[in-house]
Amino acid sequence: MALPHPTPDDLRDTDAFEALMWAMARPGTVRSLPEGAADLALALLDRETRVHAEDPELARRIAATGAALVTPDRADHAFCTTAAGAMAALAVLPVGSALYPDEGATLVMPAIIGAGPLLGLTGPGIEGQCRLRLGGLPEGLLDLRSARCRYPEGIDLVLVDGRRIVGLPRSVAVEVL
């Protein structure tokens, strides 16, 4: 039997997932995607998912995976490209339940990594405290996040800056230093 060869899609998806997995497992560390937020969509989404996408071009690519495009209150994944859109989505995305925390949504949103207010992260995946500068976040995002993340319920954030990503899973506490 011939050895199976990875397709370019296989390679991109495994690279994107590797970046996302370590970004989530070590919140506050910066990882690199092959190209950008669209890689995450292609690595995670298929016909079993319900997705909210703000950008029409990305929405078209997501629709081609077979995922259903829905309003944010019904979505299990949301891809936002503006601060206002991310704020609106975070307010209504499903948080799951204590019975099924996995139904809490994943929100991919833009940020400026390495500039802006200094944040201190504590929680699983972090030895002591991790300090990180994050800019471009909408006003009140962190307060809204902590109001909606009543652990184990919650929404997991992926902050994207070009190819770079930082993960903020619901288990992590964020304080502004």
């Binding site: 997995m21 925390p101 996995d102 652990y151 288990s171």
Partner: peptide, 9 residues
């Protein structure tokens, strides 16, 4: 990814 976000669940 969800398993990492809620450790042990």
């Amino acid at each position: 990814i969800k398993a990492i976000a809620v450790p042990g669940c």
